[in-house]
Write a protein that binds this DNA or RNA. Structure first.
Length: 271
DNA sequence: AAATTCTCCTGAAGGC
DNA sequence: TGCCTTCAGGAGAATT
């Protein structure tokens, strides 16, 4: 599933193609994604120039001359740049048509979304209450420590809460906690600022290195079709339940938190 | 206010 | 071989 690094990779991949280009049309084949694609979206897009692309959490934003397209990939969404007519298949839900190419959105599970807003996107209900970007300076041990005060929730849920920090999904939450040596169920109010420093640094590190690898993939393939980013990353714990810890050989444990698979090393990440 | 549960959807995997 | 059941998962909404 597209995590923050993959969204960033997609952004970097399509940016050179779409920036300062005009959207000529949108073809919607399946409007029922997580939310209905607005029926009047076409009128907002046609002949509008894409001024720039940006990312907020896992949302990809197309800033137009007037208004902003807000795209989320859900669990199984992907964008391709196509330059020749290719018959759409079952899960190709919309095409964004430019002059010499089009972007095709594919999403088997339809947890993604495509919305449009005329207001400042940061004020859009979906984005307004988001926490800081994990790679920004605002996301640091002091910030987390203050937020964690008087809270009982476990640290994995805490860092996956978008009001606390955006873009930390299940994979990177598990990997970051392993790197920081913190048990996923540790109540956040019991975590010292020093340990939060380890955690914030771990989160930045895993995300950065995945983005870097995604960027490398882009250079190699020069389009957004290649599987990018985290697939190539060495994962220490995610998907390795009951396998030996790469640090201490102890068998990795698999628990369920909020119905999410959560793998950790009981020896490296004691409670 | 904070925390938990529910919900959308389909492909993959497992059971028989 | 094939049909049926189960399950994963991002994240906002609904509920406790």
């Amino acid at each position: 599933m597209p995590e923050l690094p993959e969204v960033e990779t997609v952004l970097q991949g399509i940016e050179p193609c779409v920036e300062n280009k005009f959207i000529r049309a949108i073809i919607v084949r399946q409007s029922k994604l997580r939310w209905e694609i607005p029926k009047n979206i076409q009128q907002h897009l046609v002949n509008q120039k894409v001024i720039k692309l940006s990312r907020r959490g896992k949302y990809l934003l197309f800033h137009l001359k007037v208004g902003t397209l807000i795209l989320h990939f859900g669990m199984s969404g992907s964008l391709k740049i196509l330059t020749t007519n290719k018959p759409p298949t079952t899960h190709d839900h919309f095409d964004l048509i430019f002059d010499n190419f089009y972007l095709r959105y594919t999403d088997p599970r339809r947890f993604g979304s495509l919305l449009f807003t005329e207001e400042d996107p940061e004020h859009h209900p979906l984005l307004a209450s988001m926490g800081p970007e994990p790679l920004s300076n605002a996301f640091n041990e002091r910030y987390l420590f203050k937020k964690a005060k008087n809270r009982k929730v476990g640290v994995k849920q805490f860092i996956m809460n978008h009001k606390i920090v955006v873009g930390v999904g299940n994979i990177y939450a598990a990997e970051s906690l392993f790197l920081a040596g913190i048990h996923p169920l540790t109540p956040v109010s019991e975590i010292t600022e020093a340990r939060f420093e380890k955690l914030t640094k771990a989160i930045k590190k895993v995300l950065q290195s995945a983005i870097k690898k995604g960027g490398t993939t882009l250079k190699d393939f020069r389009n957004s079709e290649g599987k990018a980013g985290y697939f190539q990353q060495k994962l220490n714990v995610y998907g390795r339940a009951n396998e030996p810890c790469l640090e201490c050989q102890q068998l990795l444990q698999d628990i369920r938190i909020q119905n999410r698979a959560t793998v950790f090393c009981p020896k490296c990440q004691p409670l």
